[in-house]
Nucleic acid binder design. Structure first.
Lengths: 239, 239
DNA sequence: GCGACAGTTCGGTATCGATCAAACCATTCG
DNA sequence: CGAATGGTTTGATCGATACCGAACTGTCGC
């Protein structure tokens, strides 16, 4: 079984605390420098360097040189998806024993970046709104942007690459521990996050994947997308 | 980050050759005994026992005692999904270097079990047929069996649990290295595989996940489902 | 009861790999 | 140029863990 050996290699790479921390940090979608990642993982720069070269060698990360910094990012959506699914299993793996339910968890549950798009309650809410507005329909290939949806989203400021057939987007059920509903990933998902950030409707936490909706964002999401946000009230209720 | 630690644990469990072999063997969907798994992984029974208790402890596997044997199986579809997604990343991880493209690979590409349902070219073909026949539609929750579809599938011999709302099935894009299309998982997927095996339309390979279509199966799939199978011809072509 | 078989537990070995410090290379900036 | 900064390489250390054999528990069939 040649394939099994490969699977072992990939899993073993994730199965180390320092490397997993690095990968988790990059799940935010940003590109981070080696020094920054070393700090996050709380290891020396030499160890971090070793880990990073392994991860790049296994094509889990890509690296781009800019000035005298090396920026690392997740290599592909497939890798992000894999990490999400591992995290999903890890979440059910501890059922009752010692669930801290920290306010940090609550923040992530509310809204977070998943690799390059929005997830959590916020991501799901936006996906729902777009579907019920007829901007997006879901097909067996994941989903498509309708013509009116393309119009609407372009007006809103998304770069939708009008020529190609890339109107197709990639929707999928959220694998995370929190919601189990669809959110919007792929090119459209990435563009939405970019535009929201640009408009300062959302703010990303400096050192986690959490995403907070600003005051203007709250108004904008309500007026433009029809998304009502009593998120914070919800999030604080116990299930 | 409490969640990260957990993720590390799960990934580390998969990141060992013996344990990954065990998990892969169980991805066929059957329950296997500890002795059998030790043989597959080529380790002594004591080592296997240690691995298995770890895997059960982490809820990746479940165990049921029967007579004087202990039967192990994958604990949940979520675990199966995670393993598939790791394998998918591992498959792209080696691009050109040493792709054997064995006849065994071809067999798996053709048709295979994925945990408890059909995947590969065969699984996708059946999903396509069911969709175009109107037996199944896909919604944003994954998919549903239509009324006529339920009628058809019940007649065909599936146990569909008519009372509950479990007409909903779980469709998802195939994450494997081969097809990137939908197949049918969940209860309906498992029932399909069961019924096909019962009718001897398909045969499972003894010691891999490969599934072969029998002669009667070929006829049956064509006449009942409208699935045309020139699979073998396709499979042997180079991409 | 007594073998035969399935599985676990224990003790000991050996290997693997994560880690760091220090030296080294390369780029930028004063 | 030389100092500073980002990153890699090297060599040594050390803890974790995969592995086995042997002894043990428990169940089945004769």
């Amino acid at each position: 079984m040649a394939a099994a050996a490969n699977m072992v290699e990939v899993a073993a790479l994730v199965g180390d605390t320092a490397r997993a921390t690095i990968l988790s940090a990059l799940m935010g979608g940003q590109a981070l420098t080696a020094r920054e990642l070393a700090a996050r993982a709380r290891v020396s720069k030499s160890t971090a360097s070793g880990h990073l070269s392994k991860l790049v060698g296994a094509r889990l990360l890509t690296v781009t040189q800019k000035r005298r910094n090396r920026y690392y990012r997740i290599a592909s959506p497939l890798v992000a998806k894999m990490l999400e699914s591992i995290k999903a299993v890890a979440a059910i793996e501890t059922p009752a024993r010692h669930q801290p339910r920290s306010t940090q968890d609550d923040r992530l549950r509310m809204g977070r970046t998943c690799y390059d798009h929005l997830a959590g309650r916020l991501g799901v809410g936006i996906a729902d709104a777009l579907v019920s507005n007829g901007c997006v329909v879901l097909t067996d290939d994941g989903g498509e942007v309708t013509d009116s949806g393309a119009h609407f989203l372009s007006n809103f400021g998304l770069a939708l690459a009008p020529n190609t057939k890339s109107k197709r987007i990639f929707c999928r059920p959220c694998l995370d521990w929190s919601e189990r509903r669809y959110h919007i990933a792929g090119h459209v998902g990435a563009e939405l996050l970019r535009r929201f950030t640009e408009l300062e409707w959302v703010e990303r936490d400096r050192d986690s994947r959490a995403v907070r909706v600003t005051a203007t964002g709250k108004v904008g999401l309500r007026d433009v997308f029809g998304v009502a946000l009593e998120f914070h009230d919800h999030a604080l209720r116990t299930p």
